[in-house]
Design a protein around this nucleic acid. Structure first.
Lengths: 138, 138
DNA sequence: GTAACTGCAAAATATTTGCATCCTT
DNA sequence: AAGGATGCAAATATTTTGCAGTTAC
């Protein structure tokens, strides 16, 4: 796992530093999405808040993570699959937010359904966020 | 229109005040979604920032407006259709964000496609946000 | 050694809260 | 008149920026 972390960073031309390894490790070990606050908490007191901001931003730019639209004012981040690359992010799965436990997970096996847009609208990305009760809270 | 504004407020047991009429009017006269910042700008200097916060929150609670999930950290608000009531918001249309002009519109005629969830997941709400190029920017 | 990354401090923004005053009903 | 709504001030919280010191390559 540690090796995988280093590998991901190197693949994206990023220096392998303690902070980045820590944060990337959180994503790899967490099934769902994480907010900035989650990351600060889980990373412990060792990391500066600013480093978290900057690291998340770099990860976003490199396409290592993507963010998930939420109805409340929080921003959630989740790992991208391998077919995401810098610049063009193709996030073809559905996100599920559990109203009970509050966790957000990516439903990798649920593909985005086709949406037929009105004439002259061109779609470049579709985000689908389903909220409800997840299987663990049922 | 002015009558309609008063009516909406009264239907929701809200006092009819200048600030609420102003903000509600903005939504009625605007085809798309508005951010907190948009509202502050369009409302002019007359309104306190805090009033905007509180008014939007009340409108949300009453189901007069709903918020739209966005991938960046902004929060957008848009009018609800008539079939929205306090507590339960049924927002069965697709939102479209134009990457060119930046406007967000509700595509009332595009219904949310069915999403088949894994076993034991219960869906209570589905948000679909499409981004791309709108018909005016094409 | 050099470029990139981090931590600290501070600035800039954004949001929330308390309270006195004003407006609706 | 009473309750709710607003404006102002101030407290919090969030995010950004600059810079000097540190680390990775």
């Amino acid at each position: 796992m540690r090796i995988e972390i280093d590998d991901i960073l190197k693949r994206n031309q990023l220096s392998v530093t303690a902070g980045r390894k820590k944060i990337l490790g959180l994503f790899l070990n967490n099934p769902g999405a994480l907010s900035h606050g989650d990351i600060e908490k889980k990373a412990g007191e060792k990391f500066d808040r600013v480093t978290v901001y900057r690291t998340l931003q770099v990860f976003l730019e490199k396409g290592i993570i993507h963010n998930i639209p939420t109805t409340d004012n929080s921003i959630l981040y989740a790992l991208c699959k391998d077919d995401c690359h810098e610049g063009q992010h193709q996030d073809n799965h559905v996100h599920f937010i559990c109203n009970d436990c509050g966790n957000t997970v990516c439903l990798e096996n649920v593909t985005i359904p086709a949406v037929k847009l009105p004439k002259d609208f061109i779609s470049s990305q579709i985000d689908v966020v389903v909220s409800g009760i997840c299987k663990d809270c049922k």
